[in-house]
Amino acid sequence: MTELEREEWISVLNLVPDEALRAVIDNFPADWIIKPKALPQAGLGLLKMRDSALGEPFYLGEFPLSTCWLSISTQDGKTAEGAALIMDDRIEQAEQLAICDAVLSAKLPGWESVAQLVSLGAERKQIIEKERKAILARTRVDFSLLDDAGDDDA
């Protein structure tokens, strides 16, 4: 299984290469019955922010959003629900991620490969975080008094 909370799965799975995700989905049994619990949608989300000066909410802008909520029934009678919301136009991508969410949450056959994808995505997320932290590490200002600094203006 994965150490991440369920609410973190989708964001890291969405960092996995499309082909790797597709390959895992293609390996799930073809006889599963997958039904929507809600109409899959692609549209926009409205992003509300709170200004840090006076604490008032305001709308910063919009972002693309695809949503999917589905249920899976296997031939041996197991059922599971999965859902995905992603900042993306592609409903099919949200559907694939929702299937992964269902498989992993109910440990349906093949859940191990989804868990591996989660690990892969988490690694990718860590690399992005490290690249960003490297920007900070390389540009941290070390203020010192002129007397202490000497000639070395680091």
């Binding site: 369920r6 969405n14 992603i86």
Partner: peptide
């Protein structure tokens, strides 16, 4: 991070970042 509620658990999930 842009957060919306997970449809099943109702807890906030990250849908992406801006």
């Amino acid at each position: 991070p842009v957060m919306l509620p997970h449809p099943i658990t109702g807890k906030p999930m990250e849908v992406g970042e801006v």
